[in-house]
Design a protein around this nucleic acid. Structure first.
Lengths: 165, 165
DNA sequence: GTTAGTGCAAACCTTTTGCAGCTCT
DNA sequence: AGAGCTGCAAAAGGTTTGCACTAAC
């Protein structure tokens, strides 16, 4: 879906294009990042300080239900917030570093194969697929190895269990 | 992981095996279904009415952080609750019917291929992968077609937009 | 005897809802 | 004009936290 496509889709559904929705759609389409509701709200307020947080939630729900944006959790890496991205790009998986929070995207034929197999083998009409992987990026893998080493991971004695940071 | 494997894993980590944890682990291992925290809590209370809801949350967090159970959202089909399942089985995706809520599991090589490709192409050490698909099961696909038809889907005029049920 | 784990109450955070008033078409 | 949309306040839902007490090791 090319930029501006969302607005067209909304109009097709007989929905109104309000000042608030314009702002939110622009922010969603411009941002390459994965925004959560609060982040989007704060960005929107810079353009219109009167825009209410509730409007953000309502708009996101609308877009989600219309299939125009996808909702992500990013493995709940930081709390229970949801993240949103427009469906402009090809289907992809999100790979989240559990240590630094870095998010990478994975494109590849296993995703398409999986969708096809689910439809063929289970008889489902697939509407949305969300694949999220959690792990450690190449940088954090190394750091983590050192950390575990320092904590004496080799011989974890009784009572020496490492606590969550 | 065979039944009882979780208890052994916990002991290895120097964690205590309390009456409450025994109950919760048994329920998790026995149940084939995907339990959410509230459901697990209600089952646990049947065995020990004094067991507190907070203990359920704390235990689930512990098991999740130890990698002994996986946390699912099932596409948030009914609210924001999370669902839990032990990691005894082979890696699989969850396919949720957005109309009736039915959950099916998909096993297949695309899952393994994807994990391998993420590790090779992105240099991540993958710890957990969660794949969830939303769509319509064969039964609901047919029902839905009728429903949309009755609602006059072919010519949605201004103001006639169907509202969420 | 230690220290991890529990129960209770209360807080917390994100999201939803009811309603009166505003605004897009 | 009128239904759709917004803002405000308040509630809801799910989960976490502080603290004193209990129980596993």
């Amino acid at each position: 879906m090319r930029p501006g496509g969302i607005e067209a889709s909304l109009r097709e559904q007989g929905l109104r294009m309000t000042r608030q929705r314009k702002i939110l759609l622009e922010l969603l389409e411009q941002s390459g990042a994965h925004l959560d509701a609060d982040h989007l709200y704060r960005l929107a307020r810079e353009r219109d300080p009167r825009l209410n947080r509730v409007t953000v939630y309502r708009t996101l729900k609308l877009l989600k239900d219309s299939g125009l944006v996808d909702e992500l959790d990013l493995m709940h890496h930081k709390g229970e917030a949801h993240y949103y991205e427009t469906r402009m790009k090809q289907e992809h998986a999100h790979v989240v570093c559990l240590r630094c929070g870095r998010v990478e995207e994975f494109y590849g034929d296993p995703l398409r194969r999986m969708r096809r197999q689910i439809e063929n083998h289970l008889g489902f009409q697939v509407v949305v697929v969300r694949t999220e992987a959690g792990g450690y990026c190449s940088h954090c893998r190394a750091v983590r190895a050192r950390e575990l080493d320092q904590a004496g991971y080799a011989a974890p004695a009784r009572g020496s269990r490492r606590r969550k940071q």
